[in-house]
């Protein structure tokens, strides 16, 4: 096999796409990353610190970008896929810049979109100004280094709502987004770190600390940072006369309704298939779960799609942390290599 003659297109320039491309380039393939946004890095660009070790997100982005700055990698930003078909073992791609590409293999790293919080109207996102999403809180930390309400005050009380758009039949998502629990814990700690006077209360249905060191972080949030936890789902949020947000939940552990007035309500928005993920899983007639690509086999062929030569990486397949996404990207690169050993 001659790696040099094989060309691979990676769709999506987020962490998953970048890492797949970096690995493939190092294996000797020619890789082109097509990214619809003007910059690469994906959602990672918006993050502040990463759980569970509070690593600076900007630093990781930088590292991934540097790894991808490789002579065998061509990065095309501001360009999206219009069409993708497969004929006689070759792919045909048409881009928004009317470019035709014929790669030997394609990696879909089309990722996720955060759940549109407006759809859970009872939480008041888009209606009450001091209701924000977890992603907006990340940006707030990143851009201003502190947490403020819309009128610039440091909030005295912050409520964190888990499972917004996840595990919710009412928005058609039965699945667990897997990262919001730990993200809620992480953000609660960050708020407490920045503003020790602020009281932070997490409203949760279940705390799912499935990753390595997640449970320890949860413990730390209780022991060291004094984060409050209420086991109960918030049913509605209303604005009080003094501009606070009054949330209603049941404290299921004492079987009584509770109300709490907060200055800032942070919604832990779940992970949904991105529009490109949804569009191409449909167009390529690949079975999908909630719009996410379904791989050939969840165990042994999790990086392959049912289409020969079309590979899947990262959150295009479903909710995953950044750590998992990067590991998956490396696995995908390995599977691409294996594919060309046989073809």
């Amino acid at each position: 096999m001659n790696e040099n003659s094989k060309q691979i297109v990676v769709v999506g320039g987020g962490p998953g796409g970048l890492e797949t491309a970096s690995m493939l380039a190092r294996m000797g393939f020619d890789v082109e990353i097509i990214e619809k946004e003007d910059v690469i890095g994906g959602h990672l660009n918006q993050y502040y610190q990463l759980f569970p070790n509070f690593r600076d997100a900007g630093e990781l982005t930088q590292e991934l970008k540097e790894r991808a700055a490789h002579p065998k990698i061509k990065i095309s930003t501001g360009e999206s896929l219009l069409d993708l078909t497969r004929n006689d073992g070759k792919f045909e791609i048409l881009t928004s810049k009317r470019r035709k590409i014929n790669p030997d293999a394609v990696v879909m790293a089309t990722g996720f979109d955060p759940f549109e919080a407006e759809r859970k109207e009872e939480f008041g996102y888009g209606v009450y100004p001091n209701v924000i999403t977890s992603i907006e809180l990340e940006k707030m930390f990143r851009e201003q280094g502190k947490v403020t309400t819309v009128d610039g005050r440091i909030p005295e009380r912050v409520g964190i709502v888990h499972c917004v758009g996840s595990r919710d039949e009412k928005v058609g998502n039965f699945y667990c987004s897997r990262i919001c629990c730990i993200c809620g814990v992480k953000q609660a700690i960050e708020i407490r770190k920045h503003h020790p006077e602020t009281r932070v209360t997490n409203f949760y249905m279940d705390m799912r600390m499935s990753g390595q060191y997640f449970e320890e972080l949860y413990r730390q949030s209780q022991e060291r940072w004094g984060v409050y936890y209420v086991r109960g789902r918030i049913s509605e949020a209303a604005m009080t006369v003094d501009g606070k947000i009054r949330v209603k939940a049941e404290d299921t552990l004492i079987a009584k309704p509770v109300t709490l007035s907060v200055d800032l309500l942070v919604l832990m928005v779940g992970i949904e298939a991105s529009n490109s993920t949804k569009e191409f899983s449909k167009r390529l007639e690949i079975e999908s779960d909630y719009g996410f690509f379904r791989s050939r086999d969840r165990h042994s062929e999790d990086q392959e799609s049912p289409v020969d030569g079309l590979f899947l990486a990262g959150t295009a397949k479903g909710p995953a942390s950044i750590k998992e996404t990067l590991a998956d990207a490396r696995a995908t690169a390995g599977k691409v290599w294996e594919y060309f050993q046989n073809n």
């Binding site: 008041g124 209606v127 209303a238």
Partner: peptide, 9 residues
């Protein structure tokens, strides 16, 4: 309507 805050507001 209490569950549709935007209508109420």
């Amino acid at each position: 309507t209490h569950l549709t805050s935007s209508i109420k507001m």
